[in-house]
């Protein structure tokens, strides 16, 4: 791995531990994708699935008691208000995934556009954008998120946009360096010789190449956004309405609850962990496939 004076970090896969680099995605990738799909579908269809109402005290039957251990009746047990933890975890995925998705789409759109333009145009525009990225990266990301949410409201959109802003600089840097790497190639010169407009060169020649590292970054970034939302939730600063994995874990981590009924926290922790792991693994495999040796830390 090497570093540049602006602090960009690139990680190079080294050694024989990289099995079969760049040819196949492998089984692990597809298992990860399958998990992500299952979680997403379950979250999207949660209200129509045959599971308990997440807010029903005592479960759908109204007969469950508080803090019962996982059983056939309540897979992940019940919480302090006798609500079904499994149902709450599945429903909690809704906000977490939406926040993660919106955030990374925003990060890709804004960061990607800025990075590609900066890498293609260079000159003063590049210097301004690069400085902007450095400034954004000078705030520890959670601190920046706290700052923004403290000034605005804590609606779903605000939180998602805030976490998207955190993604702009890391995404932008990777997009910029990938663009620079490709813009120097002769096929871009050839496109100019043909008489392609700058727009066409960016869209048809550069974008397909820059999209490869972006794809893996999107998966990693989505994981980061979901985790960041959890961090905000833990500080009591995430979305004011609805439950998220972070809020569920926070509920379950109150000392008394954690002592008496650890499953209240462990169930959402397990879901969060598996999902983040799946996103990380899929992103990592995709990065190796593209043989793109950059990863934003």
């Amino acid at each position: 791995m090497t570093s540049t004076d602006t602090g960009t970090v690139t990680v190079t896969e080294v050694g024989a531990s990289t099995p079969d680099p760049g040819t196949r995605l492998g089984r692990l990738f597809w298992v990860s994708v399958a998990w992500i799909v299952i979680v997403t579908v379950a979250a999207a269809l949660a209200p129509w699935l045959p599971i308990d109402d997440p807010d029903a005290i005592g479960g759908d039957s109204g007969l469950d008691t508080a803090l019962t251990a996982p059983s056939w009746n309540a897979w992940f047990g019940t919480d302090t208000l006798a609500r079904d933890v499994f149902a709450r975890t599945v429903h909690g995925a809704r906000v977490s995934l939406v926040v993660g998705l919106v955030a990374i789409v925003l990060g890709l759109a804004v960061g990607g556009t800025l990075g590609i333009l900066a890498g293609y145009v260079r000159g003063a525009f590049d210097r301004v954008v690069t400085f902007l990225f450095v400034v954004l990266l000078s705030f520890p990301s959670l601190v920046l998120a706290i700052l923004i949410t403290s000034l605005l409201d804590r609606g779903l959109v605000t939180i998602a946009v805030t976490l998207g802003v955190l993604g702009i600089a890391p995404v932008g840097r990777v997009a910029r360096s990938a663009t620079i790497q490709y813009a120097e190639r002769d096929f871009v010169r050839a496109a100019r010789m043909i008489g392609s407009s700058h727009r066409r060169i960016i869209v048809r020649e550069l974008l397909p190449n820059v999209a490869a590292p972006m794809g893996s970054l999107a998966l990693l970034g989505m994981a980061l956004a979901i985790v960041a939302e959890g961090g905000l939730a833990f500080l009591g600063l995430s979305v004011s309405e609805g439950s998220t994995w972070g809020k569920l874990i926070l509920d379950g981590s109150q000392t008394q609850t954690l002592t008496d009924a650890p499953w209240v926290a462990f169930a959402p922790i397990a879901m969060l962990f598996m999902t983040v792991l799946a996103l990380n693994l899929a992103g990592d495999r995709l990065r190796r496939l593209g043989d793109v040796r950059t990863s934003a830390i």
């Binding site: 002769d186 010169r189 010789m193």
Partner: peptide, 21 residues
């Protein structure tokens, strides 16, 4: 840009000359 099609170029590096995607 309008004149460009009349003047084309072939580069040294065959790999770098063609968009891999």
């Amino acid at each position: 840009r309008q004149v460009r099609p009349d003047l084309q170029m072939i580069f040294q590096d065959p790999i770098s000359s063609l968009n891999p995607r």
